[in-house]
């Protein structure tokens, strides 16, 4: 009996979707637009976010060592720093390497400079795991007896830190707002669709349908609507991105951001998430909406 009822509810929902054609098209269209907006925001947001992170990645600082600092101690110091969780990467340049680099930039100067006893210092480039940890790592090494000076622009680092944080917070806030708006739009669309059919609910109850039997078709219908809207938005977006691939590369080059990615793999992954989300959103909206009409 349970399977018979379940089968009937599933079949009833499909029939009802077909017979309430315009209502179904309206509900799916609104959900489709909501998903499309969310998708575009997330794809470009992700791209923009990685651009912000790459700015942070470019920020590093350099430690210059005293000319009399023994190299073995410097290397030991580097190894200690490498094990620091806040340090992402280090690059050591010995006095000799610094001289070689200078000679490559200005050929013929190496011999003269060697005569004066190589004026370059050994140095260590430090890249931290986050721009925010740059300051604390720099502070922890500045009093080391091997260190002559640390080169980095505190103001630039602070500005970048503040900027990236602000942009990420703004992005997150916008995403949360967009998610709330999306939920409310879908909820109201489903509510309106159910409201226009509230007499059906009353009739179903009058002929002896249980609450479950009344709710079932409406919820399943909203689940179908949500899932179809999710599939449509993914497919449309995939083809739009594929069609405008060249323009997107130009755009990303112009704004110095990574190319927004929505390839086949990303589309399938995003599509699956959206189908689950769309179906769940539809089901919750229908459940909430139908509560107002059931049990009267």
């Amino acid at each position: 009996m349970l399977w018979t009822s379940l089968w009937r509810v599933l079949k009833m929902s499909l029939t009802s979707m077909w017979r309430n054609g315009w209502l179904t098209i309206t509900a799916i269209s609104v959900m489709f637009l909501v998903f499309l907006t969310m998708n575009v925001f997330i794809i470009f947001g992700t791209s923009f976010n990685s651009a912000i992170q790459s700015i942070g990645d470019k920020v590093d600082f350099t430690i210059f060592f005293k000319s009399d600092a023994p190299e073995d101690q410097i290397l030991q110091f580097r190894d200690t720093l490498t094990h620091n969780a806040l340090v992402k990467d280090t690059a050591y340049t010995s006095k000799e390497q610094a001289l070689e680099i200078y000679d490559q930039q200005k050929p013929g100067t190496k011999a003269t400079l060697q005569d004066y006893g190589n004026p370059f210092s050994a140095s260590l480039d430090i890249k931290t795991s986050t721009p925010a940890s740059l300051d604390s790592v720099a502070h922890s090494v500045e009093n080391n007896p091997l260190v002559k000076k640390i080169k980095y622009s505190k103001q630039t680092v602070d500005a970048i830190n503040r900027g990236t944080q602000l942009l990420q917070q703004v992005g997150m806030t916008l995403l949360v707002f967009l998610a709330i708006i999306a939920f409310l739009v879908v909820l109201n669309t489903v509510r309106l669709a159910i409201y226009t059919r509230r007499h059906e609910i009353e009739i179903m109850q009058l002929v002896g349908a249980t609450d479950w039997f009344v709710r079932g078709p409406f919820i399943i219908e909203a689940v179908y609507d949500g899932a179809i809207a999710a599939i449509l938005s993914t497919v449309v977006l995939y083809f739009v991105f594929a069609h405008f691939s060249t323009q997107l590369i130009d755009l990303s080059y112009l704004f110095k951001i990574p190319k927004p990615d929505f390839g086949l793999f990303a589309a399938i992954r995003s599509g699956l998430y959206q189908i689950v989300l769309g179906a769940a959103l539809g089901a919750v909206s229908a459940w909430v909406a139908i509560r107002q009409h059931i049990g009267k």
Partner: peptide, 24 residues
């Protein structure tokens, strides 16, 4: 009880002025 109202209603047939048919 609320859970048995549906079953109870199946014992009584109802007819209304506005027919109350499912339009679809």
């Amino acid at each position: 009880p609320r859970g048995r109202v549906a079953q109870y209603r199946r014992k009584i047939g109802t007819v209304f002025q506005d027919f109350k048919l499912l339009r679809n």
